[in-house]
């Protein structure tokens, strides 16, 4: 019996030490604010941005996933091109006043002056990828953690329309340049989407024709 108890205590000690040595570090409110300021500064300096992305959709009910690849181009203040290239072609363009959504079989052009929902979706997409979403404290409750070798910003939606779909959004920023490297979107139904951002290039000239609405 005594030997059994000793083994049990040893196991619990090892388990606890594992927790203490884990990757996550708790940040004070001040530290969190400093990190957010640093990210906000880096985001405000982004005039243009191009990158590639790999999107993995995790389907909880089917225990399956769907992977797609694409590229993004952003130009301040409100131009975004989000294009899926593999395994399907799908294009989303926001040029400040119009949104274009198109695939092989269907194309739609939406006037954002008459459809505020789509304008809001585009704005959230742009602010998420550039890191400017951290300023949206009226829309999200924001906390920062130092884990997995990066700064992980967790955003809990406040608006009912967003809360109905997403339980939380995580933005992962690299510690050196405060640039976004990953976006994790967690949905109410248990599904999640992971978007890995790579080949980031900022403040280079971008061809404005990328944001032209295709005919």
């Amino acid at each position: 019996m005594t030997r059994t108890i000793k083994i049990f205590v040893l196991f619990i000690s090892l388990f606890c030490s594992g927790i203490l040595l884990s990757d996550a570090a708790t940040l004070t409110a001040q530290q969190q604010q400093q990190i957010i300021s640093r990210i906000n500064t880096a985001a405000s300096e982004i005039k243009t941005m191009t990158c590639s992305f790999t999107q993995t959709k995790n389907l909880s009910m089917l225990n399956d996933k769907m992977v797609s690849h694409g590229k993004m181009i952003y130009s301040q203040p409100d131009k975004l091109r989000w294009e899926y290239t593999e395994p399907y072609q799908y294009l989303f363009i926001f040029n400040g006043s119009k949104i274009y959504i198109g695939n092989k079989s269907r194309k739609d052009v939406i006037d954002t002056n008459s459809n505020k929902v789509f304008k809001e979706v585009a704005r959230i997409m742009m602010s998420t990828v550039t890191g400017k979403a951290l300023s949206s404290t009226s829309e999200f409750t924001i906390t920062v953690a130092d884990e997995r070798g990066a700064y992980v910003v967790t955003m809990l939606p406040k608006k009912k329309e967003i809360r109905q779909m997403f339980s939380r959004i995580e933005l992962v920023f690299d510690k050196t340049g405060s640039m976004i490297s990953e976006i994790n979107i967690f949905e109410k139904n248990g599904d999640s989407t992971n978007i890995k951002i790579t080949n980031i290039s900022t403040n280079k000239a971008v061809d404005e024709s990328n944001f032209a609405i295709p005919e």
Binding site: K57, L59, Y90, N103, D191, T193
Partner: peptide, 17 residues
């Protein structure tokens, strides 16, 4: 037959069995 319908952005629309 279990099914999930998602949009191109990966946002879930409908799950069914």
């Amino acid at each position: 037959i279990a099914g999930s319908m998602i949009n191109e952005f990966g946002i879930s629309a409908i799950d069914f069995i």
